[in-house]
Simulated assay, not measured.
Amino acid sequence: MNYTLALDALPATYACHCLDCQTWSGSAFALHAMLPEAVIAVTGPVVLYAHEGPGGHTSCQRVCGVCHTRIYNTNMAVPGMVVVRAGTLADSHLLDPVAHIWVKRKQPWVTIPDGVPSWPESPSPEEFAAAVRKG
């Protein structure tokens, strides 16, 4: 499976430190980019995994049908948007997260740089959009 993003530059990314992201990534946090669904084009086999989140919204995870890496998801709470797993981007080494969410669950050894917005849980949509726009 391959995917492309119709973007001129790397997207703004954020780190999520929630327990689900830690478990699903097998790491301390997961890097994400929230983008309009129209910018992603996928070729090859994709496996869909749908589950209901704590707020009652269905999240549909897309994983590579070959290696089972999570690539992106959609959520009925934010129609028309996708959340891309930024670590799967070809230039992921160039990413610099513009925000951190669910930091009340972050690993104690993770240090968030001064000046980078962070929230104990999920920010309001307005706060989050402002942080991502600045990035």
Rank of each mutant, 00 (worst) to 15 (best):
T4S: 15
T4W: 08
A6Q: 13
D8S: 15
L10H: 01
L10I: 03
P11K: 02
A12D: 01
A12M: 05
T13R: 10
Y14D: 02
A15L: 06
A15D: 08
C16Q: 03
C16W: 01
H17S: 10
C18H: 06
C18V: 08
L19S: 14
L19Y: 05
C21N: 03
Q22P: 03
Q22R: 15
Q22G: 04
S27Q: 11
S27R: 05
S27F: 12
A28C: 13
A28Y: 03
L31T: 03
L31I: 07
L31M: 11
H32S: 09
H32C: 05
M34A: 11
M34S: 14
L35N: 12
P36F: 10
P36M: 05
E37A: 15
A38D: 14
I40V: 14
I40K: 01
I40E: 02
I40T: 08
A41R: 11
V42W: 03
T43L: 01
G44M: 06
V46Q: 02
V47M: 00
L48R: 12
Y49D: 04
Y49C: 04
A50W: 00
A50F: 04
H51E: 11
H51P: 02
E52I: 11
E52D: 10
G53F: 06
P54F: 12
P54N: 15
G55S: 15
G56K: 15
H57N: 15
H57M: 13
T58M: 05
T58G: 00
